[in-house]
Design a protein around this nucleic acid. Sequence first.
RNA 1: GCCGGGAUAGCUCAGGGGUAGAGCGCAUCCUUGGUAAGGAUGAGGUCGUGAGUUCAAAUCUCAUUCCUGGCUCCA
Length: 649
Amino acid sequence: MIKITLPDSSVREYEKGVSGLDIARSISNRLAKEVLSITVNGEVCDLTRSIEADSTIKLNTWDDAEGKHAFWHSSAHLMAEAIDVLYPGTKFAIGPSIEMGFYYDLDLPEGKQITDKDLKKIEQKMLELARQKNAFVRTEMAKEEALAHFTEKGDEYKQELISELEDGTITFYEQGGFTDLCRGPHLPNTSYIKAIQLNSIAGAYWRGDEKNKMLTRIYGVTFPKAKFLDEYNKMMEEAKKRDHRKIGKEMELFTFSQSVGQGLPLWLPKGAALRERLENFLKVVQKKFGYEQIITPHIGDVRLYKTSGHYQKYGADSFQTINTPAEGEEFMLKPMNCPHHCEVFKFKPRSYKDLPTRFAEFGTVYRYEQSGELHGLTRVRGFTQDDAHIFCRPDQLKEEFKKVIDIIFIIFKALDFKEYTAQISLRDPQKPEKYIGTPENWDKAEQAIVEACEEKGLNTITELGEAAFYGPKLDFMIKDALGRSWQLGTIQVDYNLPERFELEYIGSDDKRHRPVMIHRAPFGSMERFCAVLIEHTAGKFPLWLTPEQVVILPISEKYNDYAAKVSNYLNICDIRSIVDDRNEKIGRKIRDNELKRIPYLLIVGEQEAENETVSVRRQGEGDKGTMAMKEFADFINDEVRNQLSEIYN
RNA sequence: GCCGGGAUAGCUCAGGGGUAGAGCGCAUCCUUGGUAAGGAUGAGGUCGUGAGUUCAAAUCUCAUUCCUGGCUCCA
């Protein structure tokens, strides 16, 4: 007998050689049905693998990432089997599970092609094969033997993969008539897979290298219950509805023009006003934290970027330089604000008493992003960073870091981002050659970040080797209303630029010292942030931010004058209102304006006009009763004040 | 940049070798209304751009611009 320890620390005894499936059965029938894989002493395995010694286990179901992983990985094999049947001669490269589903990269036989229209056919074949309840059988083979097998098959992809594996035994999985090189684990058999949807086809380079052959990648997702597929599709639909490109158009926030150029957003009046409110909000917050606004030009002498190192490192990813043939000058459209800010710092000698010095600018930068990479507002060629650079003494680093974290939290609160993670990116201790600056400085900076996060009680993950070459950083990822993650703000420590620009301050010892720089952008870029905000809120922005806060709906044209009077009054009270004076019935006006995402609808007719009142409707909530004009104005302003409590306190 | 898909009215989209369609929106008129779609009429498009094939191209071919799903990249 062997002892099996379960996650709740309870210990059960089983025969030697017991399988995960056996254990699940001994606990409950339901668990036996739902379990997908087993983690044995930290290693995820097949449910059918026998356990030979005392172990600590965890049974993974659909609710565990490990369970989904086995499910989708097996689905990838199932898809490969279907394609192998439908398109004989296809070579299979890699087919992993991903965050939401799986894909397989294929090299189709000469002259064959799979298009969107073929996906249904493959799905059908997969369902047919799934119903056959074929077991996923694990076999082992010596490396030589495995290599010979794929050499015979003429599959150069698997050959390459195997030849890179360590010598020894190689594992294979076979289901139906399909065998694949695979570490596993897999489901016991194909019948677990009940619902299948292949989503898209894309090109993908073999091993992600653009020098290699382009393979055909098919993305799909599968589920153990048809209901889950429905839920998945509802979720995708909702995401589509919230797409910032669609809402941006509907709400007239921004647009693009072929004539202006790709990746160059045009902010329409409502979008520009919204963005301006965001900027002003941050300006007020930053002012409280001791920042000073500066303004610098959109171009800079190329020598500036040679000094900063951006030219050498990112010259190819920047727009071509602007030349003045008559005078032989050479300028770059600025890809970063920091070099300009360093020059602002150098304007005059700085004393240790002046530090930290914090320069902020909504600086528009231009980067030559690859054309295929552009996407709505999230990836553009011209964008505005809510940039600031803090020049401080090394001993001030931690305090400054904490203050930036405070600013970021004020923003999260005002914009209702409730879930976040912060990633601390440190250097890779194995590769000191990748980084500039002394190990002592790195130690200090990393320690400052780690401690700042601890003292602020941040929810962090730490990644080694993810630091920039010039310093460690802290990135914030928020989760939106649909549970999707977006990377937003960043705080980065930099020893490089102060060095390159020879920045100095006079210390209390009357000697010259080098300051440390912190780059930080809580929003990241205004464009990207607005996109995230649109998708997070589905265009229903917080009251303080939304383009139109109130719409006034006269019952009939007789009350248009009164509606205009209310609107004027509200506008004087700093409330953004419009009037819907179309010749339509009130029901129609309510419906149309509810759909326009305006937070408050005011209905005015005979009674309201007589008493100088308004009948209030909150978007999505319905009738809220009647209020006097002034009462309503105060009510709205209170709500805004409440949402922005941080900057009013 | 690379591999797919696409571009038709302000928006969403159908159509398709014989000179353009729907719904919504917009305008005008009727209606003057009380909390999620009242009715009628009408205006709107050299079918992304350029070239080619053809008696004839919005439709087929090629090029090009832009959008888009991915890959690669992201200071």
